[in-house]
Design a protein around this nucleic acid. Structure first.
Lengths: 203, 203
DNA sequence: GCAAAATATTTACACTGGAAACATGCAAGA
DNA sequence: TCTTGCATGTTTCCAGTGTAAATATTTTGC
């Protein structure tokens, strides 16, 4: 009787593919993008620096897989804390989750939007990114922006919301916005949410 | 009788410092970030690959200078086409200029907001970035956002506008937003400007 | 003119990602 | 059981990178 998990069980290491992605995220969080070399990731797992090639083809392939996993966690951040709340609470949780993720995983967040490092046309990455985008898009409807009644009003409202939140997150990481390093709040850029409770968790 | 220009006139090359920055931007526009190596820039100017060290200290120093020049051009893009117009035309020109710059110099634009590549605390870079930000901030007042009357309403309106425009520009470069490659318009994310004339110039 | 400083080159080194040849371990078929 | 085939990793090598140190060359100040 075999395990019910997916049939692909690597031979030697056990599950090198996932281990490499996990190691990449650990290094990214601990030491930043500069330290994220193919050799460093491989050494962290305990294999030679050419082992990843079998699974990912090249460094870009590995970074793409890391970014895809990043989008999955990104989505989880947005969904976290929104279960069982009303519409407004869900809106707030999603937007604040977007920003909180960028603060907790700044280097991973940048990697996820760097076409020079990731293959943006990778199917897995696109699927993960779209799933993450879907969370934000679903709450855009309830914001009641763009009351023009135009045919593409929904799509435009999504793009507005995404641009606003993404821009705020990016600027805060670039160090151009502020130097305090304080916890960012969506209410800084959305007056409508100014009355909502402060962050319910530490950074 | 000497020239009235600033006293610092380099000795051998004539003006290596500026030539290196210009070469860097050329390579960036023509071949992207991956091709922007210290050796490539030096070869483009015709000096050894260690020559830049005398002027910039390290690659990071050179990239920082390139980013500073980028902010200067960025500011020029926002001011371009806004001379003599009314307030609304100036608002439109600035925002559209912000986005158009990101489209014309995508790699330079990314570099300007990459703390891993530039020294964001460099005085020259900070001054150039602040000057560029000032253009956007000056038009934020006229947009009449955040009518809450709060003490920091102005600063918040600036941050909102900046986040919105910057996020839109960044997302369009990441390839996550759309695949058409069409000319971006600020009216895509600002319904208020939907009635304004289309771009008055080709991309 | 001469010493000192600024500017640029040469050389060397540690590091990177990738390619090729080789070794190892698992699966299935005779 | 033995053997063939394939997926998985390692070893070795290579071109390329940024940086440091020693050296050469030119310009400036006196």
């Amino acid at each position: 009787m075999q395990d019910a998990s997916p049939p692909k069980k690597p031979y030697h290491h056990g599950s090198l593919k996932e281990a490499l992605v996990a190691a990449g995220i650990e290094i990214l969080d601990a030491r930043g993008l500069e330290a994220l070399s193919l050799r460093a990731i491989a050494a962290h797992v305990g294999v030679s620096h050419t082992a990843p090639k079998n699974h990912f083809g090249s460094l870009k392939g590995l970074l793409t897989a890391i970014a895809a996993e990043g989008f999955a966690r990104h989505r989880a951040f947005m969904l976290d804390g929104a279960q069982g709340g009303d519409a407004k609470a869900r809106q707030y949780a999603a937007m604040q989750g977007y920003i909180r993720f960028a603060q907790v995983h700044p280097h991973l967040f940048r990697l996820m939007f760097s076409p020079a490092l990731c293959a943006m046309d990778d199917p897995d990455l696109m699927a993960a990114a779209r799933a993450s985008y879907g969370v934000l898009a679903s709450i855009a409807k309830g914001l009641d922006w763009d009351k023009s009644g135009a045919a593409d009003a929904d799509r435009r409202a999504e793009l507005m919301l995404w641009s606003l939140v993404h821009g705020y997150a990016m600027l805060s990481l670039s160090g151009s916005a502020q130097g305090t390093g304080a916890v960012l709040s969506i209410s800084d850029i959305m007056p409508d949410f100014g009355y909502l409770p402060k962050d319910h968790r530490a950074p």
